[in-house]
């Protein structure tokens, strides 16, 4: 069976950046795709098929990204790349200044052919200091992070219950995990999911 990784690599090596058929890559479910075999990397070592940083510019189908460790990345978006920004999104939503994590296949020329790009995604834990209908004030390692509820997008997961749009069960003093999208250069986050133990 041809893997998603093999499809990405063969498409780019063939000079066909951007021509990978979404239907071909879409044959794997998300969990299967992320569970697909990846090259062995020593535990503890940097993963060459992963990149993080902030977008400096966008050139055609390539994101030019400066890593927080000052390593520069070229991240190629192809038809099968999944993009996330508070939810599934499109390439035109990737903007200079956005933070990102990306996973894909590192090509011989150093380009990362992206399987997935998560824009501005954060996953932080903290105490609820205050809560209103529109926002949660989260104490994250001594810093206040203002978490905004986005109607139609923000959900809460109370332990193993199904996701709910009702965030009213959250309480001041409670410890929660907020997964969401950072608003660049602020201490504010748009909520995708709040995880609560109860």
């Amino acid at each position: 069976m041809t893997s998603r990784r093999q499809l990405l690599k063969s498409a780019l090596l063939g000079g066909g950046a951007g021509v990978v058929a979404a239907t071909a890559l879409g044959s794997l479910g998300p969990e299967a795709a992320f569970g697909a075999a990846a090259p062995d990397v020593a535990p503890g070592a940097p993963d060459p098929d992963f990149a993080e940083g902030r977008i400096r510019s966008v050139k055609e189908n390539t994101l030019l990204v400066l890593g927080s460790n000052m390593v520069f990345h070229r991240i190629r978006i192809v038809d099968g790349t999944s993009l996330w920004k508070l939810g599934p999104t499109t390439f035109d939503q990737a903007k200079p200044g956005d933070g990102l994590y990306a996973r894909g296949v590192r090509m011989p020329d150093g380009v990362l052919a992206a399987e997935a790009v998560w824009l501005n995604i954060v996953n932080i834990k903290g105490h609820v200091r205050n809560i209103t209908a529109e926002r949660i004030h989260l104490d994250h390692k001594g810093q206040q992070v203002l978490c905004h509820r986005v109607p139609g997008k923000s959900v809460a997961i109370y332990s193993d219950a199904p996701p709910s749009g009702d965030l009213s069960l959250l309480r001041v003093g409670q410890h929660v995990q907020v997964m969401g999208a950072w608003r660049p250069d602020t201490n504010e986050v748009d909520i995708a999911t709040v995880f609560s133990a109860h």
């Binding site: 994590y101 996973r103 997935a116 997964m179 995880f195």
Partner: peptide
């Protein structure tokens, strides 16, 4: 870490 988690699941799953 994000590099490790994204090997077995999408980061957007969170948990």
């Amino acid at each position: 870490t994000p590099a490790a988690y994204s090997r077995i699941a999408s980061l957007s799953t969170g948990l």
